[in-house]
Nucleic acid binder design. Structure first.
Lengths: 164, 164
DNA sequence: GGCTTTTTGAAAATAATTTTCACTATCATT
DNA sequence: AATGATAGTGAAAATTATTTTCAAAAAGCC
């Protein structure tokens, strides 16, 4: 049963074919779910959205689609330390371009920021060039993330013990 | 049964007591295991070492000890994307000071590097100060990691599909 | 030494993710 | 447009890392 493809330009089709993969309904649906939000969705979050819209799509398939989209560079996977992967479009349509994450170690809140990127770029260029030369790695990606306590959590006077 | 404490200066005792925790044999043994290597051990790796030396110590206890040591800042936990946490001493006795990781996305090899830290420091100062002001976070930590392909893996002419 | 509370350890439980396998859809070739 | 080889899907079972449970044991204050 051909089920029709969710709305949206099927550029994914070209990308998938370019890598020798097939363009399928669940893969497009997963991409759509990620396009529709600015949040950092877990695999299950994605499943809930996708399965809500197209109940025939199962959790396993969502996991596989996410893996594949990460592999071909369309989606990026993050780890915020809560034991599950978080997924985002690599190039998000809604303004959300290159950004990094600021995670509150206390409440888990995640802030996306896009500031001070010039300074970062400088740093990255120096470092990536150096790493390439010294360790002979072809650098494909970097992970920059800051952890701290948000204002709200700081006001709760929590000691180390017991914490959280 | 008091089992005696593994060799090594019991500075851990002071630190633990300072936070209101007790100084115990398994906690010291876990710390020793991490001190004795420069590798990035998983919880099970640590268990194998510790349990090999002191068979009465169980896996659960190792997990709990690692959690606690992370909480009090003696140990740092990393994630290299293979689904399990990796642990390192925060301040390693053997030269291994402040460093970052370069991970091969292909074979999983991890290189510790300590180069270009001046440039990094500059970048971190600017960014951390900015984040604090703009988002009112008290920055406590950062995570910087580069991914790429090591020379060996590049020579294997592996296409995306099939990969690994 | 006795007492209170924390820690331990084995086993069971949990949670995220992966594998299995029979069935179905995609798409290059008729 | 039909066919067929192959890749993809989905439900359930399996796996893996980690956490919880709970009774027994150890730590450290009196």
């Amino acid at each position: 049963m051909t089920r029709g493809i969710p709305p949206g330009p099927p550029w994914l089709s070209k990308v998938l074919h370019g890598y020798g993969y097939r363009y399928t309904f669940p893969r497009e649906a997963v991409l759509q779910a990620l396009s529709d939000t600015r949040e950092h969705l877990s695999a299950e979050d994605v499943y809930l959205i996708v399965h809500g819209r197209y109940p025939q799509i199962g959790l396993t398939t969502v996991y596989r689609a996410l893996d594949l989209l990460v592999k071909i560079g369309v989606v990026v996977k993050f780890d915020f330390g809560d034991g599950r992967g978080r997924f985002e479009l690599a190039f998000h349509p809604s303004a959300k371009g290159h950004h990094h994450h600021l995670v509150c170690t206390c409440c888990g809140r995640v802030v996306d920021y896009t500031d001070w990127l010039e300074k970062e770029k400088e740093f990255l260029q120096t470092t990536e060039k150096g790493l390439k030369q010294k360790y002979d790695f072809e650098i494909t990606d970097h992970l920059i993330q800051f952890c701290g306590k948000c204002a709200e959590c700081r006001n709760m006077t929590n000691k180390v013990k017991g914490g959280e």
